[in-house]
Amino acid sequence: MTPERALTELRHGLEVALWVGGPLLLTVLVVGVLVGVLQAATQVNEPTIPFVAKAAALTAALFALGGLLLTYLVEYMVNLFHRIPHLIG
C-alpha cells in the first residue's frame, strides 16, 4: 500500500467518523448552549439540569438519526472489507 492510498483511507475513515458523530455532537452542543443561556437568564445554577437536558437530547437524536447513521457506518465497513484485497495487493 502506498502512503497516498493509506492517507486516502484514513481520510475516508475520519469523514465517516465526522458524519456519524457530528449530528449527535451538534445536538448536544446546541442544547448545552440553550440550557446555559436559560440558566444564566434565570440565575439557576443547578448542575444536573444541563446533564439531563443533554442526555435527553442525545437520546432523542439517536432515536431519530440512529438508523441513518448506522446504515452509513455499515455501508462504509462493507465497502472497506471489499477493498481490503486491493489495499493489500
Rank of each mutant, 00 (worst) to 15 (best):
Q43C: 06
Q43E: 14
Q43I: 07
Q43T: 06
Q43V: 06
V44L: 15
N45W: 10
N45F: 12
N45H: 12
N45M: 10
N45E: 07
N45V: 02
N45I: 01
E46G: 00
E46D: 14
E46L: 01
P47H: 02
P47L: 00
T48F: 11
I49Q: 03
I49K: 01
P50F: 03
P50T: 02
P50I: 01
F51E: 04
F51V: 15
F51S: 08
V52R: 07
V52C: 07
V52I: 15
A53Y: 09
A53D: 09
A53S: 13
K54H: 06
K54D: 00
A55R: 06
A55W: 05
A55K: 05
A56K: 08
A56T: 15
A57M: 11
L58Y: 10
L58S: 13
L58K: 08
T59V: 14
T59N: 03
A60V: 15
A60W: 14
A61L: 10
A61M: 15
L62M: 15
F63E: 01
F63Q: 08
A64G: 06
L65Q: 12
L65E: 07
G66Q: 02
G66L: 04
G66V: 03
G66S: 07
G66E: 00
G67P: 09
G67N: 04
G67W: 04
G67R: 14
L68P: 00
L69R: 00
L69Q: 01
L70D: 04
L70Q: 10
L70M: 12
T71M: 08
T71Q: 14
T71P: 02
Y72P: 00
Y72G: 02
Y72A: 09
L73A: 15
L73P: 00
L73G: 05
V74E: 07
V74L: 13
V74R: 05
E75W: 05
E75G: 11
Y76M: 02
Y76A: 15
Y76G: 05
M77R: 07
M77T: 15
M77F: 14
